[in-house]
Amino acid sequence: MNHLPQAWGRPRDDVYGAYDASYLQTSGPKQATQQPIVTGTSVIAMKFNEGVVIAADNLASYGALARFTDVKRLRVFLDSSVVGFSGDVSDMQYLDRHLNELAIDEAYDLETAATKDTSKPSGKLNAANLHKYLQKVLYKRRSDFDPLWNQILVAGFDAASKPFLASVDLRGTAFTSPSLATGFGAALAQPIMRNYAATEEDAARLTREEAVNVVKDCMKVLFYRDARSLDKYSIAVVTKDGVELKENEQLERQSWAFAERIKGYGTQTV
């Protein structure tokens, strides 16, 4: 018998063999992380002459189940930028809190409520800064094999006070364009938006009203053809005066009545 106190109460090596510590190994290949669970579908956005319009529906799906129908996926940052999230909702909430803390850090430089001179670029983080920051965050996480499962659009203004719109995805890939869309929107909405704003020059000629109408039309097409979409959506317009966000819009003027003329699937007429 082993009389050492360290061994008391433990299985005896002579009976059970030495303890196989391989069961306690903490190293070894790390598993590639997770999958999105509760998800939001497309975000779409396009520039116009004096700003950016961005939209996303209010649905968070659980697989094919339309589980949460009141999830607002456009988030305002510092009253001057809008971030649109598609992909995993828990990661969206993580990033939203993170950006909220970033905004508080900005407020450490005691700002004056009254001096809000919008003509010149302020010292605070603009949309271009924010987009670059998000890119770094997402790239860091993918490099840790623990990606934040989102594709994100950032709408606002750059340092030269020009309308800014850019995208970043879960790998940290970033790009910009006069119009952008994530998910199904990249296939369904982007071609429509390009009809109106193929180049920066085109976008600079679009009025706010035109841009809003194009985006609303795109939301309709997405509702027709994306099985993970909803007819309730949020839309935000970012201009130099700030952000106008509407979060409970209903798709209007849908086209369904033609179904009456569709009978059978070929030769049938009644």
């Binding site: 997770q34 509760v38 968070a60 949460f68 909702v89 828990s90 969206m92 909430q93």
Partner: peptide, 12 residues
């Protein structure tokens, strides 16, 4: 509040 599998938080 509902907390489904991924760890998101939903007020309902």
């Amino acid at each position: 509040y509902s907390i489904p599998l991924g760890g998101s938080l939903h007020k309902q």
